[in-house]
């Protein structure tokens, strides 16, 4: 199946909940609300016509324009998108789903945004979601072991966020 056939299947089943994004250049994707993620994920995995049993990658993109010169041309509000790349090894097709999150879940920017974990559907999400948590600061609820994976446990901040500033010093070691 190609992308539009899969997205049609999804739209006939879920209706207006899923939002189709047709890209002129590159990959198209389907946007789903975060509270429906598990439901949609299970459908994609278990539907016999889709069989998207292989989760290639989980990643996030931080949309925050830090360059004041480009701010005028920027059309979006600051947000984070979590991107899931799925594929089926038997039917040989791929699919992309995305979930939009706020950059912080409160006004004071203390609490990280959260998202249901899909590690119960695809075990590979276990480590990949830990990586997204580590580098982007997105918490996954229902994850079996939510802690940092690449950075040390006591590292401050989430390095792949656009407004991240590297520390001057870590444990008495100068970083610059």
């Amino acid at each position: 199946m190609n992308f539009s056939e899969i997205s049609d299947t999804l739209i006939t089943h879920f209706g207006d909940l899923v939002l189709l994004h047709k890209a002129e250049v590159g990959d198209s994707w389907v946007e789903i609300p975060k509270d429906k993620l598990l439901e949609v994920g299970r459908f994609l995995k278990e539907n016999p016509q889709l069989q998207l049993t292989y989760l290639n990658s989980v990643t996030a993109v931080d949309y925050l324009q830090t360059d004041p010169k480009k701010l005028k041309r920027t059309s979006w509000e600051p947000h984070i998108k979590v991107v899931y790349h799925l594929s089926s090894l038997f039917l040989k097709h791929t699919f992309v789903i995305k979930v939009t999150l706020p950059r912080w879940s409160d006004e004071e920017q203390n609490r990280l945004p959260s998202l249901p974990s899909v590690s119960s559907l695809w075990s590979t999400a276990d480590w990949q979601e830990r990586e997204v948590f580590d580098l982007y600061g997105v918490e996954f609820t229902g994850h079996p072991d939510m802690r940092r994976i690449l950075c040390p446990d006591d590292w401050a901040g989430h390095p792949l966020r656009k407004d991240y500033t590297p520390p001057q010093e870590y444990e008495g070691i100068r970083c610059h």
């Binding site: 890209a23 002129e24 250049v25 590159g26 990959d27 290639n56 990658s57 790349h85 992309v96």
Partner: peptide
């Protein structure tokens, strides 16, 4: 161009 791509290739150690 504005857009996004994800592509996997078969490296010796996997995809």
């Amino acid at each position: 161009p504005k857009g996004e791509i994800y592509l996997e290739t078969e490296a010796p150690r996997g995809q």
